[in-house]
Each structure stands twice: as structure tokens, then as C-alpha cells.
């Protein structure tokens, strides 16, 4: 490959990422620093204020942020607690059944988020627990996928050797399988945390008025109140929290 080849090859993807990830994020920060609209429009261009960020620290927003973080921790924990045994189960199947098992796990998420949430809304009462379960339900497929990949990479002769040396089933799991699958647990956990922080479907469709996450607040500020600058500041906080969740787990992995 010549020296300019990688640049040329990545140009289309870079254009998409620049145009629809980087540019929106830059504009998001800019709008969050604007005064709210006076009269028509959604914000007042070419103004500069920090008031939208100051408002992030009022009691209303503080409780939303605290709730969002707690909610995300619960969602990540639930999706790991459900996802890990499921991944172990799938890993234990014969090779020919594994695609079917993985397909079953993926269907609720990829085949119909709408159908899943519609069904959950009929089956569960509204409330905090239902909101968290719904969000975890949407994240579990990814957790399982990550963990299955990690578990498959473990040499099966290692557990057999541990058993042969006299370890009980539980000891073999505790001392061999679990430590070797730990990177997958961390990855699934940090993804669950980041997606839990962005939670919108669970709180919006199965939560009550008390289940207010930052993502729901962004949507409310933007469409119910038409306050784009405040919505943008909330969205910046949301993105920062999600990226912090990803970074935090990563830092702990390599001390």
C-alpha cells in the first residue's frame, strides 16, 4: 500500500463521521452557548452565555443527573447479571446450535425495538422497575454478544485441566473461566453503562413522571418548551457523561 492509500480509503467514512458526528457535536456546543430564542426561531444566533450550563446545577437538573447515573448503573448491572449466564449457556451449546441461540437473543432488539417496547408496555405496570427492566432488555443482546465472543476465546482445555486437578465445578468457574472472561465483562459493563446513561425508551414509555433521565429532558426541552440552547446544554452533559462512563472503565483496566 502506498502512503496516501489509507487516507484515500478512509475518506468516505471520514466524510460521514465529520459531517454527521463531529460537525453536529461542534454545533451542539455552539448552540448550548446561545441565548434562548427571542421571538421566532429556536435560539438567538451569535450570542454568548453560560446560563444554560449554570442551570445544569439547579436542583431540578441535579436530581435528573443523579437519577440518570443511578439508573444507568442499575441497568448495566441487570444486563450483566442476565447476560453472563445466558452467554455461558450459549457457549456451552454444540457449535451447530450456537447461531440459533445468538439469533434468539438478538431478535427482540434488532427485529423490533418498537414491537418489544409496545409488548412490554402492555405486560408491565409503569414505574421505576419496569423502566429499568425495559432498558436492560434492550441492552442484554449486546452484552450477550460481547460475552459470547469473549468466552469462545477461552481455551476449553483449561477448565478441563482445572477439573482434572481436582477443582470443583464452581472452583473451575471462579478461578479459570471468570478471570479469563473478565475483559468481556468490563466491556459489556461499560457499554451497558454508556447506553444506560443515554436511556430514553424505558423511562419515556414505561416510567412515570418521576423517571426523568437526561435524554428525556433533552427531548422535552427541545420539543415541549422549544428551548434549544438548554436542550443542547443538557445534551452536552449527556454526551460527556456517556463518554466518561466508557473512559472510566478503560482507565481501571490498565492501571
Amino acid at each position: 500500500m502506498t502512503r496516501s492509500a489509507p487516507l484515500l480509503l478512509s475518506a468516505p467514512a471520514v466524510a460521514l463521521l465529520g459531517g454527521f458526528v463531529l460537525a453536529p457535536l461542534v454545533l451542539l456546543v455552539r448552540v448550548s452557548l446561545c441565548e434562548p430564542a427571542a421571538g421566532r426561531g429556536f435560539y438567538t444566533p451569535d450570542t454568548f452565555t453560560l446560563q444554560n450550563y449554570a442551570r445544569l446545577f439547579d436542583p431540578h437538573h441535579r436530581s435528573i443527573v443523579a437519577f440518570t447515573v443511578g439508573f444507568a448503573l442499575a441497568v448495566a448491572a441487570v444486563s450483566l447479571l442476565v447476560g453472563y449466564p445466558l452467554a455461558l449457556f450459549i457457549r456451552g451449546r454444540a457449535d451447530r446450535w450456537q447461531p440459533l441461540a445468538v439469533g434468539l437473543v438478538l431478535i427482540p432488539k434488532t427485529a423490533g425495538t418498537l414491537a418489544a417496547v409496545f409488548g412490554l408496555q402492555r405486560l408491565l405496570p409503569r414505574g421505576l422497575v419496569s423502566a429499568a427492566l425495559t432498558e436492560a432488555y434492550l441492552i442484554v443482546p449486546y452484552a450477550v454478544l460481547v460475552l459470547v465472543v469473549q468466552l469462545r476465546a477461552i481455551d476449553p482445555t483449561l477448565t478441563a485441566a482445572a477439573r482434572g486437578l481436582g477443582a470443583s465445578r464452581w472452583q473451575a468457574f471462579r478461578r479459570v473461566t471468570l478471570p479469563l472472561s473478565w475483559p468481556g465483562v468490563i466491556l459489556a459493563g461499560e457499554l451497558g453503562l454508556a447506553w444506560g446513561i443515554g436511556a430514553m425508551a424505558g423511562p419515556l414509555f414505561l416510567g412515570g413522571p418521576a423517571e426523568m433521565t437526561l435524554a428525556v429532558e433533552v427531548q422535552r426541552q427541545a420539543f415541549e418548551y422549544g428551548r434549544w440552547p438548554q436542550a443542547a446544554a443538557d445534551a452536552v452533559a449527556l454526551a460527556v457523561l456517556a463518554l466518561l462512563a466508557l473512559a472510566a472503565a478503560r482507565l481501571r483496566r490498565s492501571p
Binding site: A13, V21, A23, P24, L28, W228, A242
Partner: peptide, 28 residues
């Protein structure tokens, strides 16, 4: 040299909360 950055950037759309991305794409 840009390989690592490109790798992370390619995965970034999955990591940013949809509400945050949506709120940025809207004014754009």
C-alpha cells in the same frame, strides 16, 4: 499514524447517546 484515531472514530456513533447526537444534527 491515523489508524488508532480512525478505529475509535468508526465506533463512536454507537457510543454517543442518540438524544445528544439528534440534538446536534437537528440544528445542522
Amino acid at each position: 499514524r491515523g489508524r488508532g484515531v480512525l478505529l475509535v472514530s468508526l465506533l463512536l456513533p454507537a457510543a454517543i447517546p442518540p438524544a445528544a447526537l439528534g440534538m446536534g444534527v437537528l440544528p445542522l
